[in-house]
Design a protein around this nucleic acid. Structure first.
Length: 305
DNA sequence: CCGGAACCTTGTTG
DNA sequence: ACAACAAGGTTCC
């Protein structure tokens, strides 16, 4: 059983780009659209010119306006971060890459899985976890599993998680689910808290470091000023924004043989928030998505294939 | 607080 | 063919 609905777009959205831009790992291409499990629903999405068609299986609620943050004032955001010539050019070259508003638990789990990992495998691991712990829902594409609840995962065994291919992340996931279930942190309540408080709370959770905390803050907890720094953003900053960093931070960033210390990470992300402002996360998203072509290293590497 | 190594697994690179 | 490396980092020492 499902219901079908459609949304007429009055703001730019590129569905495929947004869903495959590594801010979420729960969507896969199916037919001409995308299918994904989130909340109490399995959702199938299809974009035509200026319309998003969506089917919601499983009886849950799902709202594309909320999920893709179409309620954000896009022109205002573009105006806010578009003072930067690089970001402005990227947005103009491909409008419609949006920042998602995900379920905090789902977002947190997927980004714990994302550490020292690649996109394809993160998607695969997420699907494995869904299959092992999520309720089944019948769709016209066959049986699809819901994203597992916090409760169902906290009851998992380490071995089951290893069986999902999570590797050494199995322990983090299990400890994370149990820590949340013990009631230490109510993720939903973090939405209303300021960035610094959200960040430090998330950092207290197993498997969560500065980068994961920033991603979860940005993609599920309304902290649009959050500016996650991963290996690609690191390269982009060293390559294109050295003047913002200062000599010391620039040299630290440039030397990729060393990982960023906590305080260096903090200093740099602070500088980027100061530079881009309250919508720094939108700018980060643009820079990340296009990073591989912005970086010489990535460019030369791929041009060989 | 900093530096460095270890870490599951899969796909790609040389 | 096959060792070495990278992949949206974090933890432990």
């Amino acid at each position: 059983m499902y219901r079908t609905d459609s949304l007429a777009l009055n703001t730019p959205l590129n569905l495929g780009v947004t869903l495959s831009s590594a801010q979420t790992f729960q969507w896969v291409r199916r037919g001409r659209g995308w299918i994904g499990a989130t909340g109490d629903s399995v959702v199938y999405l299809l974009q035509t010119q200026n319309t998003v068609l969506f089917r919601v299986y499983g009886g849950g609620e799902w709202d594309p306006v909320s999920y893709f943050r179409l309620d954000d004032d896009y022109p205002t955001i573009i105006r806010s971060i578009g003072f930067d010539p690089i970001v402005r050019r990227l947005i103009n070259s491909q409008p419609g890459l949006r920042v998602t508003r995900q379920d905090p638990w789902e977002c947190l789990l997927m980004f714990v899985l994302s550490t020292n990992n690649n996109y394809k495998r993160i998607v695969k691991m997420t699907l494995n976890v869904n299959r092992a712990f999520g309720k089944k829902v019948k769709t016209e594409f066959g049986v699809v599993h819901l994203f597992p609840t916090l409760e169902s995962l906290s009851a998992a065994s380490l071995q089951e998680l290893v069986g999902c291919g999570l590797g050494y992340r199995s322990k983090y996931v299990l400890e994370l689910a149990r820590a949340l279930r013990e009631g230490g942190v109510d993720l939903g309540r973090l939405r209303g808290k300021p960035y610094e408080e959200v960040r430090s709370t998330l950092l207290g959770l197993p498997g969560v470091g500065p980068k994961v905390a920033d991603c979860v803050s940005l993609f599920s907890l309304e902290k649009l000023e959050s500016f996650p720094i991963d290996t690609w953003i690191r390269r982009v900053l060293a390559e294109l924004y050295p003047h913002l960093l200062g000599e010391h931070l620039y040299r630290v960033l440039k030397d990729e043989s060393k990982s960023l210390g906590v305080s260096v990470y903090r200093a740099i992300s602070q500088k980027m928030r100061n530079y881009f402002g309250v919508y720094a996360g939108y700018a980060q998203n643009q820079l990340y998505y296009h990073s591989k072509k912005l970086i010489k290293k990535g460019f030369t590497r791929r041009s060989k294939s």
